[in-house]
């Protein structure tokens, strides 16, 4: 992989030149929190931020999107508006890039999702390294570094950024800026290693994920699930903010006074009452405890069976967003804790 360096004072120049490749979006501050947004000024971009409220998935799988328009006599016509819009997401953290790589696998396979795939092709990602805060556990989830899924990835090493060039498009971006990127010399490799070590030391949370599937199987009947079920409000926030939650609902609406209509898909959550409800009235996950168990189970255990790793990347968003303080790290710790029956 090509690795270059970009002196920090040249970042503004790079940002202005790179806009020829698409509309520039980056984290901006909003009421003390951060959101990915279209930039009106480069100076609004915040490249040192903890986490955005919603992950970048909102660009690839929008909260709501029309996928077909129905017209009598024509049938279902795919809606393609906006699919070929070129966007650059500047400042995506490693865990969020990792999450996109996970979604890539879900939306590929035998049945490729063409809406997702089209956007993934047209939206460039410039990643940026970060330091963990008190809710981050991406290192435990093996998502603190990514080696693909981005066009460029920047490491802040103090005076300059080290830039990993991930794709041909990333290379074009580098070329377009002329000579602002410089080759790295050997001494600077140590800057990277120092940064890496600092990052590792900064983690405050650690969870052990090896054999977690086995523990989940054994603790399937744990009373912990009932406790969580009693607390959870089924608000679905944890799913909405999660970079790897992809469940969606589909609904058809008719335009008033006509037989034409729209087929829309929108984000859904397995915490909602009707997620597994069927027409006969049977609900396979009626009790709230079974729904919250399902969310953890699918992330930390089910996904391992399907794709070989948990789908959680440890971004800490769900713990941050939950109004009643349900915290994924605490849940895993609780499940792993040895409870000696004799000493109870």
């Amino acid at each position: 992989m090509k690795i270059l360096k970009l002196p920090k004072e040249k970042l503004d120049l790079f940002a202005s030149v790179v806009q020829q490749f698409g509309e520039l979006h980056a984290p901006v501050e909003q009421d003390g929190k951060y959101v990915f947004k279209r930039l009106t000024r480069w100076s609004d971009a915040r490249l040192e931020y903890d986490r955005t409220i919603l992950p970048p998935k909102k660009y690839f799988l929008p909260p709501q999107e029309s996928i077909f328009r129905y017209r009598p006599g024509e049938g279902f016509v795919p809606v393609t508006d906006g699919l070929d819009q070129r966007i650059i997401l500047f400042g995506v953290h490693a865990c969020d890039v990792y999450a996109m790589n996970i979604l890539d696998r879900v939306f590929a396979g035998k049945y490729r999702d063409p809406y997702y795939q089209a956007r993934r092709k047209n939206i460039a990602i410039i990643g940026i390294d970060c330091l963990p805060d008190k809710n981050c556990f991406c290192r435990s989830m093996r998502a603190d570094f990514v080696d693909h899924g981005f066009d460029l990835f920047f490491y802040d090493t103090g005076d300059y950024y080290q830039a990993l060039v991930g794709t041909a498009l990333g290379d074009d971006m580098v070329q377009a800026t002329g000579s602002v990127f410089e080759p790295m010399d050997a001494a600077e490799i140590d800057d990277y290693k120092r940064r890496s070590l600092n990052k590792r030391r900064a983690f405050q949370l650690d969870v052990e994920i090896r054999d977690l599937p086995e523990i989940f199987e054994m603790e399937y009947e744990s009373e912990l699930w009932d406790e969580l079920g009693d607390k959870c409000l089924s608000c679905g926030s944890c799913s909405m903010v999660c970079p790897t939650c992809y469940c969606y609902d589909v609904s058809d609406d008719v335009e008033l006074g006509s037989r034409a209509g729209d087929r829309t898909r929108s984000w859904d959550s397995c915490l909602f009452y009707d997620h597994a409800l069927v027409g006969s009235g049977e609900n396979f996950r009626g009790p709230r405890a079974s729904r919250i168990k399902f969310r953890f189970y699918h992330k930390q255990r089910g996904f391992v069976a399907e794709y070989g790793r948990p789908s959680c990347v440890g971004c800490g968003r769900c713990s941050n967003a939950c109004p009643v303080g349900i915290d994924v790290v605490q849940v895993i710790d609780r499940l792993r804790r040895v409870e000696d029956v004799a000493s109870r």
């Binding site: 035998k110 049945y111 992809y246 469940c247 609902d249 898909r265 859904d268 997620h275 699918h298």
Partner: peptide, 8 residues
């Protein structure tokens, strides 16, 4: 087709 998550 294995995307929407409902039938899991």
């Amino acid at each position: 087709i294995g995307k929407c998550g409902h039938c899991s």
